[in-house]
Design a binder for these strands. Structure first.
Length: 328
DNA sequence: AATACCGTCAACCGCAAGGAC
DNA sequence: TGTCCTTGCGGTTGACGGTAT
């Protein structure tokens, strides 16, 4: 496993990018695509290393990036995905397609983590630091449900991340072929979100054959692996990539999706649930007006906030009445 | 007004995965 | 099969601006 030679010795520039450098990089990529990042700087006339160029492009210059303040839905999505995935920012970023992993990571570290701590919630485990007051709410049962669901969600998110990467690849190919001067980042005709919806549907149908996956998912409270027919490749950091048969299945799902033309705009399923549920809208009720200050309600609201936060998580994990079909 | 402190975020660093040869 | 190279990822740093003292 070799490592790229450090660009230091070449006397390449480091630090903040100038508008001129941005312009050079943008112009080059618009014209040629990025190709090999290593060779790009020289071709583009930049005294930077390829790594720096790639970072500048992916985190700042890319045209499909939404910048600025995160809205409430985005915050909730990040928190809930973090509860499931931990610090796997790139996977989380696939659910916020216009946000970069770097931006999400920064926002978590500077805003959300602190907010959770303030509410008395451990930002690592996403559990109340003092379980006693909340245990009376019957959360232990829900926590088990959450753990169980987390395994499924993690598996699905893995695949979604893969699909998103494929989508990005298609996007890059678009640049490289430079078919036209205008583009749309969903030009390939479907979104990974809607694709995932299809998967969710499929998973419902097949759940009787496929038990919950065994994984070393990084969800912190996962203690007892559940026997399964689906195999995952283990990794030290948690759940890793699906083995090939599963990829085949995903690919067939893609084809099926294309064939049936389920169409864009279907935003139900997991993502829709994250963004749409009333229970989720209720969460963080103490922060409806964010500019009013994070602790405007004072300490007495912490408990209520914690409860709302947990409600949103658990409703997300198990939104259906007991006699309804399982979510996955 | 000066400066110490704090929060934010762009950018860097080092590691690991995976492909090419 | 082993090595090299490229890319992606997550953790960390440091510059900068705002606020408190």
């Amino acid at each position: 496993m070799g490592r790229s030679p450090c660009c230091d010795k070449l006397g390449l520039k480091k630090g903040p990018w100038t508008p001129e450098e941005d312009q050079k990089l943008l112009a080059y990529i618009e014209e040629h695509g990025h190709g090999s990042w290593r060779s790009l700087p020289e071709k583009a006339g930049l005294h930077r290393c390829g790594k720096s160029c790639r970072l500048r492009w992916t985190n700042y210059l890319r045209p499909d990036i939404k910048r600025g303040k995160f809205n409430l839905q985005e915050e909730q999505t990040i928190i809930q995905l973090h509860a499931l995935l931990g610090n796997r920012w790139s996977a989380i970023a696939t659910h916020l397609p216009k946000r970069t992993d770097n931006e999400i990571k920064n926002y978590w570290n500077t805003h959300l983590k602190k907010r959770l701590v303030k509410m008395g919630i451990d930002p690592v485990t996403h559990k109340p630091k003092n379980e006693t007051p909340l245990s009376s709410l019957g959360l232990s049962k829900n926590a088990a449900i959450l753990s169980h669901t987390a395994q499924w969600e993690s598996a699905r998110l893995e695949a979604e991340a893969r699909l998103a990467r494929e989508s990005k690849l298609l996007h890059l190919q678009h640049y490289q072929t430079k078919a036209s001067s205008h583009h749309h980042h969903h030009h390939h005709g479907f979104t990974h979100k809607s694709l995932l919806t299809n998967w969710t549907t499929k998973t419902n149908e097949e759940q009787q054959q496929l038990e919950s996956p065994t994984s070393t998912v990084s969800f912190s409270e996962m203690k007892e692996p559940i026997p399964t027919k689906i195999e995952f490749v283990g990794s030290s950091t948690g759940l890793s990539l699906l083995k090939e048969p599963e990829n085949d299945w995903i690919n067939s799902t893609i084809h099926e999706f294309e064939a049936t033309q389920m169409g864009e705009g279907i935003e139900e399923g997991f993502t829709g649930l994250l963004l749409g549920g009333d229970s989720i809208e209720r969460s963080f009720s103490g922060e409806k007006n964010e500019t009013a200050g994070e602790s405007s309600g004072g300490d007495c609201n912490y408990y209520e906030d914690s409860k709302n936060y947990l409600d949103s998580i658990f409703n997300f994990a198990d939104p259906s009445p007991s006699d309804s079909p399982p979510m996955f």
